[in-house]
Write a protein that binds this DNA or RNA. Structure first.
Lengths: 353, 353
DNA sequence: GTATCGTTTGAAATCTGTTGGTGATAGCAG
DNA sequence: CTGCTATCACCAACAGATTTCAAACGATAC
């Protein structure tokens, strides 16, 4: 009920005309247009989106794949994407994979069935075959930091190195040399990229300082465990600063350091990554490398729509900058005997690298 | 391409048979079924959901309306809803209203166009007319704590009183009497409901203690401002405990109290509301009234599907319990002269109530 | 008076499924 | 062998839009 036919009858025109009035797809005289508009009002008519996309092949829905909405990184990203999509008349299908490849495939299948206009893949847990499946169906895709741009596929490449380099230089300027890194799991691509960026800069600056790499899991609890491991290296070898792979990890580490009687930042400086909303509100407020989720979200939608509108063009790769936000969790390196001792034995350490 | 027609041709049967195989809607011999399955494989066929719901009238998509995904209350709720919906084969359209009625109407309109199977309204920013619109189109709806159950509408009624009463009794058992409350904005329904629950219990227990109500905005910063106002009441009149309308408010209040030199919980106890994931990880870990978002989400989907399956039945109202989770932000009331003084002048205070 | 033209509108095909009605085939009883 | 009942698959009519093709129109030109 309340279909285009009814409106057409009410306005005494054909359904074609009604369609053209709604979509502005061809000239319709003012008089007829007015009649149609009135009829639409009177019938309380809303076009049926299914019939519409069946007939036209288009759809105005974007599939959004994320790994875990409970991770504070994502809500802020989702918000940005949702906002950008809304402005352009697109709705979003939300799919939370929980890092489960099974669920991911299920969702990709559904996206294809639902004929989404495009898919934003904001997780790295996506198998190659799925990407091929999407590519085969000519569904535009935009990735976050995975794979390369290609036909119908664009990529947002986060420049982790930039922010990490800033963080390291900031710490170095404060007198730090022994800087540890708490990584996420290495089987997550973005985690690996961050780690590599850290290693690269450190090797350039301090080829003779041994690498201090620990492992968490992108969650608070993982940060706590890694902090314990750091503490277990003994007071003499304690790093004076720690960079964590994400803010949750940093928060966990800070809490553990403080439980152990250390003061952050007096005894040890901590830098996070992501700049989640909470980062500004912890005590001490977290110095962290900001990954601009707002821009990320906006760009993702923009790129998707760009592919939609120019299907022949190749997808592109866009660089997303990261940069350091200095708050209260970093301070000048403490001057302790341990440090001096350290400086006296660079050659030994060099062998360790 | 790759439509049901193609599959039918490939399997040498009619499209009807293919459809029946896919949907199990009537008996098909093993032999033919096998042929059809094979053809589906070979054609890499995925049914077109639009054609499907156009023909059948059904849709398997749930519209989810929330106010702000950046508020930590929501991601956890969204996750639960998404999970429950996924299990039942439903997808969700996410709509973040940002507390903007304009956007809300826009979204409701889109939901109608997209012929969603049902709508979960997890915000109170929804005008009556919109609800009527949905009701007029016979779209099943489930509300969180708004309006009443009716035809095609169910309601999840959160029992705020239960948890708040537990919180107050807990504080009273610790010796507190001057308990302040930091409310959210009163134009938000759930905020009002919480405030009223607090007032009701307090009046029953302490008819002669003046009410100490302050106002925040459900955000951290609002909690900080409210805490300042509390501090401004002067040391002699300081409440010994504060209950906040949500955890963010509580976290803001704690940080402000500590900035002012007070120790939480030694000098002042603080109770939050919601039990967001972070609540367990703040220092001190937050004593808070838990609102089980997991159950909330699961129930919401259940109720929606129940209406879908029994369209003639009236919607129902389900009570969702809340209960106190005790952590480290509450402790025995400090014994100070200010307290004694207070106890000596109950009659004066009574007049103030 | 007819051919031409641009403008405005309509008829009908199309998109891809679902589903009720119908027809064909086989098995079985009489 | 006929008639009846299951059993199984097909035909065709939808669902509600978009879009192509063409008709109708008055105006203008010749």
């Amino acid at each position: 009920m309340s279909s285009i036919t009814e409106v057409a009858r009410e306005a005494r025109v054909s359904t074609a005309t009604v369609s053209h009035v709604i979509n502005n797809t061809r000239y319709v005289s003012e008089e007829v247009r007015a009649r149609v508009m009135l009829a639409i009002e009177q019938c309380r008519y809303y076009p049926n989106a299914h019939a519409r996309s069946l007939a036209s092949g288009r759809s105005k829905v974007i599939g959004l794949v994320i790994s875990d909405i409970a991770n504070p990184f994502f809500p802020e990203l989702v918000k940005a994407i949702e906002e950008a999509a809304f402005e352009r008349g697109y709705d979003i299908f939300l799919s939370n994979t929980n890092y489960d490849p099974e669920r991911t495939s299920h969702y990709v299948q559904r996206f294809i069935e639902r004929k989404v206009a495009g898919v934003a893949v904001m997780t790295s847990e996506m198998k190659k075959e799925l990407i091929d499946e999407l590519s085969h169906r000519k569904v535009p895709v935009v990735f976050l930091d995975v794979g390369e741009a290609g036909m119908q596929m664009s990529n947002l490449r986060v420049d982790y190195e930039e922010g990490i380099e800033q963080a390291i230089l900031h710490l170095v300027a404060l007198g730090h040399r022994r800087i540890a890194y708490i990584s996420g799991k290495v089987d997550i691509r973005s985690s690996r990229r961050r780690l590599e960026a850290f290693q690269k800069t450190m090797r350039q600056l301090f080829p003779d300082v041994p690498e201090l790499i620990f492992y968490g899991n992108f969650k608070i609890e993982g940060g706590q465990r890694a902090a314990n491991e750091i503490l277990a290296t003994g007071v003499d070898n304690l790093p004076t600063a720690v960079i964590a792979a994400n803010d949750l990890t940093a928060i966990g580490a800070i809490s553990q350091f403080e439980s152990a009687g250390l003061n952050v930042p007096r005894d040890i400086s901590v830098v996070g990554f992501d700049d989640i909303d909470f980062a500004a509100l912890t005590r001490p407020a977290l110095t962290t490398i900001s990954l601009p989720r707002n821009e990320l979200g906006r760009r993702a939608v923009e790129m998707l729509i760009r592919i939609l509108e120019n299907p022949e063009e190749r997808g592109v790769e866009i660089r997303i900058p990261t940069n350091l936000v200095i708050r209260q969790s970093t301070a000048p390196a403490p001057i302790k005997p341990a440090q001096d001792e350290l400086r006296r034995t660079p050659m030994v350490e060099k062998q360790l690298v």
